[in-house]
Nucleic acid binder design. Structure first.
Lengths: 215, 215
DNA sequence: CGTTAACTGGACCATTTCGTCCAGTTTAGC
DNA sequence: GCTAAACTGGACGAAATGGTCCAGTTAACG
């Protein structure tokens, strides 16, 4: 006989507090990294108190895991918008331009919220690693779905492998973020993405003549 | 008038101790990350004591900076061997195979010693970031020098841009490391490197017909 | 409205972690 | 060999950090 699950009454205020904590953790941990951010930092930035942190999250690890989910949802939501209507090759190009522009606003700093967590957490918390891996897979699927559509519509050759192309593009993006962050310069990210797009372009049925990325 | 710099007498034993500390820090921080590794961890793994740590390094930050140099020297030394005699396209392919095989031994875990430090330190210690950025540049130069030789010898077309190709290859490598680490599977790294090699291959004067990476 | 549980602020505790100090040992160089 | 400085072990201190507790406030719901 199982004890009836104690139903948790949750108020609007509570939800808002939880959101405020996650948002503060998100911002702080993006620039300082997860391990270098303390709970007191989060508490202060979120205008809350210790007991609230521990009411909403069992411990720091749980907060971090919640942040992994939070960021994953943000990224996937953002990407769905940009990738959903991939049909011609101009789609990936616009996608590239948006990412480059966003990253150039901080001169290449901070990198990808998911990628940096993956580096820091993969060998530290198996559950976070697995969630991040899952999120990357979904992200890649958004890309490969678009490439599938391009192939079905005849824009891409039949021998193009959307899954491989999507993985390559994702690796170029993550590697580009990493190098751009180290250099404090968005240029390596541009070069990396252009390489991946060029690679996709080589599978177009009717390759255009212009080079990628420089209008 | 400047006080004469106090010449530091250094013994063989001291050198060995310093080396032992760096080696221990290297191993520990590769798997746990820099911030999650404590000085006590390093002390224990290196079979030394607190006072020795602080004799050889002013503080943790200095140890980390020394480790950045240490790893940079290791990687560049290793890479010089593999990249120095790049002449034909089989060179990069062998290089790829060696990296993939090494990474597959840990099922994709741990990633690149330089890349992971770059993610963790770039927004935390400007000096480390700058050293890492410098090391990446030297690494890329080893690659681009090889590509230059391939171009001069007529293997690569004249319109190939060795610097851009090298940056793209490095981004693919780093992104591949990152995804492989998150997935605990070397496969994404293979796909990423193959994409970059395919891109280089597209600049060959006489493209071979076989695909890259699967013999 | 009144009761109950969610919520809040912040004092407080325990541990971890960086860093210091010092008494004793070993080594380099004369 | 002798001496000075490098070297070593480990006890110790102080601050940072994760985590607990509780008295009081606010909101949900009959």
């Amino acid at each position: 006989m199982v004890a009836p699950a104690k139903r948790q009454r949750i108020s609007q205020r509570g939800i808002a507090t939880r959101e405020r904590i996650l948002d503060a953790a998100n911002r702080l941990m993006l620039v300082r990294g997860v391990n270098a951010t303390t709970l007191d930092d989060v508490r202060e930035a979120s205008q809350t108190s210790k007991s609230q942190l521990y009411r909403h999250f069992a411990d720091k690890q749980e907060l971090v895991r919640a942040l992994v989910e939070y960021r994953g949802a943000l990224v996937l939501q953002r990407e769905r918008g940009g990738l959903e209507r991939l049909r011609s090759f101009s789609g990936p190009v616009r996608w590239r331009n948006a990412l480059v522009q966003a990253n150039s606003l901080n001169n290449g700093r901070y990198g990808c919220g998911l990628g940096s967590m993956a580096v820091e957490l993969s060998d530290q918390d198996e559950q976070s690693r697995s969630m991040l891996s899952e999120t990357f897979a979904e992200w890649e699927k958004l890309i490969s779905d678009g490439l599938h559509r391009m192939r079905d519509s005849g824009a891409l050759r039949q021998d193009a492998d959307p899954e491989r192309l999507a993985t390559g593009l994702m690796a170029a993006l993550q590697g580009g973020y990493l190098l751009a962050n180290a250099a404090h310069d968005v240029a390596p990210m541009e070069v990396a993405l252009d390489m991946a797009l060029e690679h996709i372009r080589s599978f177009l049925v009717e390759p255009s003549t212009g080079s990628v990325g420089q209008p």
